[in-house]
């Protein structure tokens, strides 16, 4: 077969496509022949699991937000649950507390992993050891970590942190026993617990930064800080944007820390939106405020979905350039 023959054969095979799409076989057999059945069978386990454990409960929750129920009897109440939630004086407090937590986590917790990842990427020796150390807190089960920190936060002068402060000449602090200090204390632990995961992601992203850019910057006489500012951070911004929205979504749903550390106290200083949802559903479950709980959940989900959408729209260009 000459080269020309071969080329002709290839053209022959390609011809049907070049001459326009063939009429699609819409029958079930056609679908099966195209591999639709196999695809469906592969996806079936996940579809079933998601349907049973995610989508169906989500739909039920939305439906429940319009009902008054104790899980045995159900009564449609329209928007009553939403009205009840919005007129609850504790809602404002919970929203403010959640925003406060998110703000503190953003200001202190967000830049820290970026900074640490950049610094760690500059380290030449024992990189793996630093990565492992940074990731270690993530391995500790969250509940265990909180209970450990609760012990560290003992307000007694002999508490772990207060002993350390004592060495530095700082008087003992009340930590979570005080309405003003409780929330920053929660953020401190949350940052410690979550930073490791973020650091690993940033470290991976840093590997993708082309070394030529640094070389070029060096030729131009850039200092290390200018290299970070003009090369590293712009190269990381796609990842930073995704991490930022993930953090905002996560902090808007903060529950574990206030639930385990303080139960929302002292004097509601750490009641968050999710803790309020929990309280609606479970604190006085005898009558059942499941309707209010799901109503607030639906509102929170809608808010987060809208915020995420706007965020991605606003940063679409910036993050993909």
């Amino acid at each position: 077969m000459t080269v020309l023959d071969e080329r002709r054969a290839v053209e022959q095979r390609l011809r049907p496509r070049q001459t326009g799409p063939r009429r699609r076989d819409r029958s079930i057999r056609g679908w099966v022949r195209r591999g639709g059945l196999v695809t469906l069978l592969f996806a079936l386990p996940m579809i079933l699991v998601f349907t049973v454990y995610s989508w169906w409960p989500i739909l039920q929750s939305i439906w429940m937000s319009f009902q008054k129920t104790n899980l045995i009897t159900y009564q449609f109440v329209g928007l009553d649950n939403f009205v009840n939630v919005l007129s609850d004086p504790l809602l404002g407090r919970a929203v403010v507390n959640t925003l406060y937590f998110a703000l503190l986590a953003l200001v202190f917790g967000f830049p820290l992993p970026i900074l640490m990842a950049v610094l760690m990427s500059e380290v030449k020796r024992m990189k793996g050891l630093y990565s492992a150390l940074a990731y270690l807190p993530v391995i500790v089960p969250p509940v265990v970590a909180v209970l450990l920190w609760k012990f560290f936060y003992s307000a007694s002068p002999t508490g772990v942190f207060n002993t350390i402060l004592g060495v530095l000449g700082i008087p003992p602090q009340p930590w979570i026993q005080d309405a003003t200090q409780a929330m920053p204390s929660l953020v401190l632990e949350a940052t410690w617990a979550a930073a490791g995961g973020s650091i690993i992601i940033y470290l991976a992203a840093l590997l993708a930064v082309p070394p030529e850019l640094y070389d070029a910057a060096e030729v131009d006489g850039a200092s290390i800080w200018r290299k970070i500012w003009h090369v590293t951070l712009p190269q990381l911004r796609g990842v930073i944007f995704v991490m930022l929205i993930l953090q905002v979504i996560a902090t808007a749903q903060v529950f574990l820390e206030p639930y385990l550390f303080t139960g929302g106290g002292p004097n509601n200083a750490t009641v968050t939106v999710l803790l309020l949802i929990y309280r609606y559903a479970f604190e006085n479950s005898l009558g059942g405020k499941y309707g209010e709980a799901t109503a607030l959940s639906v509102m929170l989900a809608l808010f987060l979905a809208a915020a995420s959408f706007l965020y991605f729209k606003a940063t679409e260009k910036w993050s993909t350039d």
Binding site: P174, Q177, A179, G265, P266, N267, N268, E283, N284, L286
Partner: peptide, 23 residues
Amino acid sequence: SHTQEIYALLDPIVQAVLTDRNA
């Protein structure tokens, strides 16, 4: 009436008195 809910209302008050000298 509404025993547990009333107790829940009082929790933060007890906490306030114990954690805020000027409550």
